[in-house]
Simulated assay, not measured.
Amino acid sequence: MVWISSRWKILAMVAPALILFTLFVVYPVAYSLGFSFTKFRGFGNPDFIGFDNYGALGQDPFFWRALQNTLIILVVGVVVLVPGSFALALLLRRKVAGAGLLRALVFGPAIIAPILVGLIWVFILDPKIGLLNRFLGFAGLPSVQWIGGDTLTPYAVALVFIWSSIGFAMTIFYAGRQLLPHDVMEASELDGATGFQQLRYVTIPMMRETFAIVTILMITNVFKIFELVYMLTGGGPVHRSETLVSYMYFTTFTNQKYGLGMALAVIITVLGAVVSIAYLALSRERKAS
């Protein structure tokens, strides 16, 4: 009876979170999956067409361009943001004058709405009115197509994403470093470990879980980028700067191809899950070895 009572207590505590997760995650994913096999324009009854929407996306050059842009942002964002935020956390741990203010300034962009972040950076990166090209003009250098072009746009979006996210990631690393046991750190110092050796052999291995949390959060955030692209380029010109989410928005709400848009939403969900699970598997293998 005690076991049954304990089990019901656990279920009662888990139930609210499980209900919310079902309503706001499981149900929308299942709903999107169902409509991804239909032809539906927002009115009337959806017509079942099987895998035709997925086949259409496979032949859509704009989809592949959006996928390419998203993967570029993912690679650049994760490669720069994770080690950069970790380094910032280590630097801002030091007892220097104004360290608290610096931490607040670094974290500041994380609390700005993404739509406002995009608006801020439009006035910096826009080829015609941007401050960056004005500075280049004052220096006698030619202007650069930072956004809206064929080459630099995904890298510019990655830069803005890093700027807006690095403070949040830094805070997680900072908290993780604070939780490391002091006796272990002191023992490594007494054993004669240099600062670099302590970082490589003690700090980083003990913070593997923190690295995994930050990396997964950044991966999932990249697959949700919409507002930045919407404000910086609107996905143009001719969809060359789209990400997967911005192209899904265009397909679903502008073209009113709801079935096709839901198929794209399913692909985004699967890609995000696959990349996250693959990273977790690799990190566990490294930890085991």
Results as ranks from 00 to 15, higher is better:
W3N: 08
S5P: 02
S6M: 14
L11G: 03
L11T: 01
A12R: 11
V14G: 08
V14F: 10
A15H: 04
A17R: 04
A17S: 09
L18N: 13
L18V: 09
I19C: 07
F21N: 12
T22C: 02
V25T: 02
Y27M: 12
A30V: 13
L33G: 14
R41S: 11
G42D: 02
G44H: 12
F48N: 13
G50L: 08
N53A: 06
G55P: 11
L57H: 12
L57G: 06
L57A: 08
G58S: 09
Q59L: 13
P61A: 07
P61C: 08
F62N: 13
W64D: 00
L67K: 09
Q68S: 06
T70H: 02
L71N: 02
L71Y: 01
G77V: 02
V80L: 13
V80M: 09
L81I: 05
L81C: 04
P83I: 09
G84Q: 05
F86Q: 01
L88C: 06
L91G: 14
L92P: 04
R94P: 03
V96C: 00
A97C: 08
A99L: 01
A99W: 01
L101I: 01
L102I: 04
L102R: 07
A104D: 07
V106C: 13
I111G: 07
A113I: 10
A113L: 10
I115D: 08
L116A: 13
V117Q: 04
I120P: 01
W121T: 00
D126H: 15
D126P: 09
G130Y: 03
G130K: 11
L131Y: 01
L136H: 13
L136N: 12
I147N: 05
G148S: 05
D150V: 13
P154I: 00
Y155V: 10
Y155E: 04
Y155F: 13
A158T: 02
L159A: 15
F161P: 02
S164F: 00
S164L: 03
I166K: 00
G167F: 01
G167I: 00
M170T: 05
T171H: 15
I172N: 15
F173D: 09
Q178P: 03
L179K: 09
H182V: 11
D183A: 03
D183T: 01
V184A: 01
M185P: 00
M185E: 04
M185I: 10
E186I: 06
S188C: 08
E189P: 04
G195Y: 13
F196H: 13
F196L: 15
R200W: 11
Y201D: 11
T203M: 12
P205L: 06
M207L: 09
R208N: 06
E209W: 01
F211L: 03
V214D: 10
T215G: 15
I219W: 06
T220R: 11
N221E: 10
V222S: 04
V222T: 04
Y230M: 00
G236A: 03
V238R: 15
L244C: 00
M248P: 00
F250I: 01
T252E: 05
T252Q: 12
T252F: 04
F253V: 12
T254K: 14
G259M: 08
M262D: 14
V266N: 05
L271T: 00
L271C: 03
G272N: 10
A273T: 14
A273K: 12
V274L: 12
V275M: 07
S276H: 12
L280W: 09
R284W: 05
